[in-house]
């Protein structure tokens, strides 16, 4: 039974893992053209494992930005993983090192797959989906670094449209409850309002704050 849930996580995320691998290739190409060499981009994908933050940090470096600016942009983009980690925490049992390692498998996609419609989480889905995306991301980066530009731009294949579609599909079951629907509407409105004006990462973090409504019922 245990194993089946891990496999469910792999299966749930498989189509998106293809898209993630495509963007891993793009990241590898970008990092290589930014003069990061071959090893550093792969090490970064294997340790940071957060696509948007990696793209932002490397773009900033490539444009002559400072180390501090690159790190600050990445931290801002990843700040949402703070509250997301808290939401998963009650369901991650075991020793502290084991919780630390499994927490590294948190990315938007694996977290979204592990959310259950009653608001709970299945950590086995999180780890199954997370490991699948992790393998796709690191392998994609390596392919990009070693110059497989021939694979082309993932945008040509429409792979960038796979992400909003996945998040929409996983959002739908959350809308059955009135509080969930209200939080979704506020979250979408905040993101829409802030995206044109705020730094990347801020809209999603601010939308997460919409859940503070929960305190007031």
């Amino acid at each position: 039974m245990e194993q089946r849930r891990y496999r469910d996580g792999v299966r749930a995320i498989a189509p998106v893992a293809v898209a993630v691998a495509g963007f891993g290739v793009s990241f590898g190409l970008l990092a290589r053209s930014a003069g990061m060499g071959r090893v550093a981009p792969i090490v970064m994908s294997a340790t940071t494992f957060a696509g948007s933050a990696q793209f932002a940090a490397v773009s900033l470096l490539a444009d002559g930005g400072t180390v501090a600016a690159a790190v600050a942009a990445a931290v801002l983009l990843n700040a949402r993983y703070g509250p997301i980690g808290v939401s998963v925490a009650p369901y991650l049992h075991g020793s502290a090192p084991s919780r630390f390692l499994r927490a590294q498998m948190i990315v938007d996609e694996s977290w979204a797959v592990a959310v259950e419609s009653d608001g709970g989480f299945d950590p086995r889905l999180l780890v199954g989906a997370g490991l699948t995306i992790y393998a796709a991301w690191v392998a994609g980066t390596a392919i990009g670094v070693f110059g497989a530009g021939a694979l082309g731009d993932p945008a040509t294949l429409g792979l960038d449209a796979a992400f909003p579609a996945l998040f929409l599909a996983l959002l739908v079951p959350q809308l059955k409850r009135r509080r969930g629907l209200a939080a979704a509407i506020f979250g979408a409105a905040i993101a829409l309002g802030l995206t044109p004006v705020a730094a990347p990462g801020v809209p999603i973090l601010a939308a997460g704050l919409a859940c503070l409504l929960g305190v007031r019922r």
Binding site: I84, P164, L175, A191
Partner: peptide
């Protein structure tokens, strides 16, 4: 009770930013 609403609000925000960002 706050964290419970994180999924719908963040997922909705991700749909928006990934679609039109």
């Amino acid at each position: 009770s706050v964290v419970e609403l994180l999924a719908p609000s963040v997922l909705a925000a991700l749909v928006v930013t990934q679609a039109v960002g």
